[in-house]
Nucleic acid binder design. Structure first.
Ligand SMILES: NC(=O)c1ccc[n+]([C@@H]2O[C@H](COP(=O)([O-])OP(=O)(O)OC[C@H]3O[C@@H](n4cnc5c(N)ncnc54)[C@H](O)[C@@H]3O)[C@@H](O)[C@H]2O)c1
Ligand SMILES: NC(=O)c1ccc[n+]([C@@H]2O[C@H](COP(=O)([O-])OP(=O)(O)OC[C@H]3O[C@@H](n4cnc5c(N)ncnc54)[C@H](O)[C@@H]3O)[C@@H](O)[C@H]2O)c1
Lengths: 256, 256
DNA sequence: AGGCGCTTGTGAAGGGGTGCACAAATCGCG
DNA sequence: CGCGATTTGTGCACCCCTTCACAAGCGCCT
């Protein structure tokens, strides 16, 4: 309302950046808002209503307002949110005002795709180094970066200030790689290997497991199929689908 | 939870599967349990306690027991769970007793990695077809599959019974591809493009956005840094770091 | 056979997230 | 200058999920 705290001057003057530890669910949605906001900015929008932004981000508008209110947001009643200001706010809260350096370990099948992904740079990150353990891969150049041996990680980590480590090695090597990353001071890890990593407290790990996503979809697919197959027996609580309108879509019958 | 269904193996004809609609959080963890169980089975374990399995899956043991109880699980008090039986149960609930056919649309940078990923096959899926819109890509052979033009989707979908569609195209094309998938009867979509998809009710969409994961990590990184920077005592619990390199993060001071 | 230790399954309490509904605030306009 | 239209920010009720704690059940050992 009255006190405008600009992201450009987070540091000084007694006033703490006031990082209120946001609800985790909110944090997970902020990047989505940010992406939608960038789209809006590119298409010339100066302000946006919570309804409009919520729509663009695929969420409920009340949820969006509550999320933004958590970070002491600055909307104008009767008008909406200033797109540019909101972008700055969210980028500041997410710690994106500095371009974070990412180290990618494991330049195989998936690692190659990641290394060449331009979505990194455009969303606030910079791939600072590529590592692999396979000597035949060391020295290869990908998107202007040279693959180094993983043993060089300590030295490189000292040069570049690695903020986040990405693991794209086989699961059998993931824990060892995570240990190495932690050893050089990395406190945030994104893990693509399908395994559980054990890390000391203070280190954040997020996991991306493609097969898990597919299996979750498989469950719903299975459930949908069994619903259409059921002749409305017992009538327990399974008919709890929204609206009661029973899926006007085409359903593939799964052979049984 | 008085209705004890028979451990009736998935294959059993007759008994109606009567899928209990599990809590969504439980569904999301079942694949993790399944992976851990497969690991245990491979290492010769016949039974496992909730504590052991929870440990292997990286969750709380009470949570795991409640999850398993939801699917009318069959453990033996004083002993634990039969690994093989539990695998069958979970695979059945997840709808993995049939190998689901996956269609991958967009065989670019990321699509190539996905097409060559053997984690699909080993976790219950089969890539049935690859599609792209780029004529120069059509015809290319990847891992034994030939890339077809996306216009052939209807025909191929009729032949193979596509269960899940994976979108790995640029964001600008994702909505159109989703529409095409829905049009041919696909009701489950995994989307790698950074955008919100709009689909009719009854269609499930899951999204994997790498940048979002990194930005969430960035937030926590930012928060950790601001905590260590604060003179307010409190004694941070971050001292678990080995290298003593206590996140000497440069405080950003970038003006817009 | 009986007791004992171990493990499951679950009731209950507590916390967090979601969405509704509305008061407060702001702008444009007559 | 005030009024109505519009939109934000939030109190509140509800629901889901997590976690603790413990009784019930099971096998083994004596
Ligand atoms: N390819 C995909 O589409 C995909 C999708 C989801 C998950 N994954 C997972 O991502 C990981 C990588 O998959 P991939 O297909 O790229 O496998 P890959 O075998 O092609 O690549 C793995 C790379 O890691 C390197 N490596 C092995 N041990 C290492 C170590 N100790 N230190 C550094 N590098 C090491 C190997 O030399 C290799 O280059 C796997 O865990 C896989 O399950 C892959
Ligand atoms: N490369 C990565 O590591 C990575 C990581 C995360 C997310 N993503 C996202 O995944 C998507 C693909 O990334 P990429 O790096 O593979 O891009 P890419 O440009 O290399 O590949 C995109 C492919 O999609 C094809 N395509 C375009 N329009 C199509 C249409 N209408 N129908 C069918 N095919 C079409 C193109 O011909 C191309 O082959 C992008 O949305 C990207 O943001 C990529």
């Amino acid at each position: 309302m009255s006190q405008h705290r600009h992201p450009g001057a987070p540091g000084r003057a007694g006033a703490v950046p006031a990082l209120p530890d946001l609800p985790e669910a909110t944090v997970a949605r902020l990047p989505e808002y940010l992406r939608a906001l960038h789209n809006l900015a590119e298409t010339g929008h100066e302000t946006v209503s919570s309804e409009g932004l919520a729509n663009a981000a695929g969420v409920n508008s009340a949820k969006l307002r509550k999320d933004l209110s958590h970070l002491g947001s600055y909307g104008t009643r009767g008008v909406g949110y200033d797109v540019g200001l909101l972008i700055d706010q969210i980028e500041f809260v997410l710690g994106l005002t500095q371009r974070r350096a990412v180290a990618l370990v494991g330049v195989g099948n998936l690692g190659h795709a990641l290394a060449g992904y331009d979505g990194f740079a455009s969303r606030g990150f910079r791939i600072a180094a590529l590592f692999d353990a396979d000597p035949s891969r060391v020295g290869e150049e990908i998107s202007g970066l040279t693959v180094r041996h993983v043993d060089e990680l300590p030295r490189v980590a000292a040069e570049e200030s690695i903020s986040i480590g990405v693991i794209a090695t086989p699961a059998s090597a993931a824990q060892a790689v995570a240990d190495q990353l932690v050893a050089v001071g990395v406190t945030s890890i994104l893990n693509f290997a399908p395994c559980v990593l054990s890390v000391p407290e203070g280190v954040d790990v997020r996991k991306v497991d493609l097969a898990i996503e597919l299996q979750i979809l498989s469950f719903h697919e299975h459930r949908k199929a069994s619903l259409t197959a059921l002749p409305a027996s017992g009538g327990s609580a399974l008919t709890a689908l929204p609206g009661g309108l029973a899926a006007t879509d085409t359903q593939e019958a799964i052979g049984t």
